[in-house]
Design a binder for these strands. Structure first.
Lengths: 206, 206
DNA sequence: TGCCAATGTAGACAGTGACAGCATTGTTGT
DNA sequence: ACAACAATGCTGTCACTGTCTACATTGGCA
């Protein structure tokens, strides 16, 4: 055929089974949870034999690893956009937090896959690196806050870890519907408010 | 037999298969992860037929639900102890946070089971209730802080949610080995420090 | 003592992940 | 043009799992 993309449906070769698997897997993941994800069902959904996925992913875990990686890529992109939006530093921090929590709620199951260290040793390194990118976004924001004199001094990486962990906590709670009643946006802004107050105030003695 | 506990090993009846299953399941959970937990393997480990666990847990999920419930019971107990220890309010808050994170690290997989809402609708209610107990501990601490005038005003439940989420975030990160290098205690106290500063300071305008 | 509910056993079934061997395709070098 | 060839997909198979049903054993209780 002339074009390299989107092969006909009935053909022997699927054309781009790999991406199709990933796409469908994400849908199934959010729909039925990670327990409901089956390579064979995936193959059935895509009208392909049960052994076909094995050509593209050695393991079921390999598929999950790739999903996790792609998830980080997508999430980091959204965080970057939020971080570079116009507004005060405080507003941008709020935007990043909202973006993070929104992503978590949109991709409930994917987030848990992303943050579940069950990955193969080789994929683990790749994931470790890209998972840091999202925290680097936060670190950079806070570092600028310090040089501008708005935020209290201290290791910016340590501050970023605290901020990241706090927002991550809200994200996981929201993602698992454990905020019982409190709207996600409210929980997020309350957290950012406390964080901001805590990081602009002079550090209290323990 | 005379005693009701610890039946002989070779006997037809196990004696207390239910507790044995839960105990062994927790071990396997932390050792091989939730993926490595198999009812049949569990039965084999306890020298019992593969159908026996079905007498005590309708589902594999039912077993996980019970593990989650027991996990909350154990965790809440430890949080209560920390909350009622001697010391200033700040110190007690720190103790609670440390206890929470320590539990999370000790029971990596169990924590994720506890906070994974995949539970059956009936067990879900029971779990929802007891999972609130841990947050109530925090709420009570903060409420006392307000009446003593140490903490800034505001809905104590909202404040508790923020504090809980922040510590929960550290716990999940630590539990998944994502603090890269930063010792858990350091991350925990840094978080509590920011929280404390943020909650004693007058709330900043958004 | 005899019944009975609780508990454990044995067998069966469908679904799953993983593997090996074979079939088909598109490409590439000549 | 055409013959390798690697990539991709297919079929068959294996061990394992969760769950269901029918049966066996036990201990307690009327």
């Amino acid at each position: 055929m002339g074009t390299t993309s989107t092969a006909a449906a009935g053909s022997y070769h699927h054309g781009n089974l790999r991406s199709a698997l990933l796409e469908r897997a994400e849908q199934t993941l959010e729909l039925d949870g990670v327990e409901g994800l089956s390579l064979r069902q995936l193959a059935r959904d895509l009208g392909v034999s049960h052994g076909a996925p094995g050509r593209h992913f050695r393991d079921k875990q390999a598929l999950l690893d790739e999903l996790a990686y792609d998830g980080f890529v997508a999430m980091n992109a959204r965080l970057q956009v939020a971080a570079q939006a116009a507004g005060t530093l405080r507003e941008r921090l709020d935007a990043v937090a909202r973006a993070y929590v929104a992503f978590a709620v949109e991709h409930r199951t994917l987030l848990s896959v992303m943050y579940t260290t069950k990955h193969a040793p080789d994929a683990s390194e790749r994931l470790r690196l890209i998972s840091h990118a999202s925290m680097d976004t936060t670190t950079e924001l806070l570092r600028r806050g310090q040089t501008e004199g708005v935020l209290s001094a201290g290791d910016p990486e340590r501050l970023a870890l605290v901020a990241f962990a706090a927002v991550h906590g809200v994200a996981t709670l929201a993602s698992n519907d454990l905020l019982d009643g409190v709207p996600v946006e409210a929980a997020t802004s309350a957290t950012v408010a406390v964080l901001w107050a805590g990081m602009t105030a002079p550090p209290a003695a323990p």
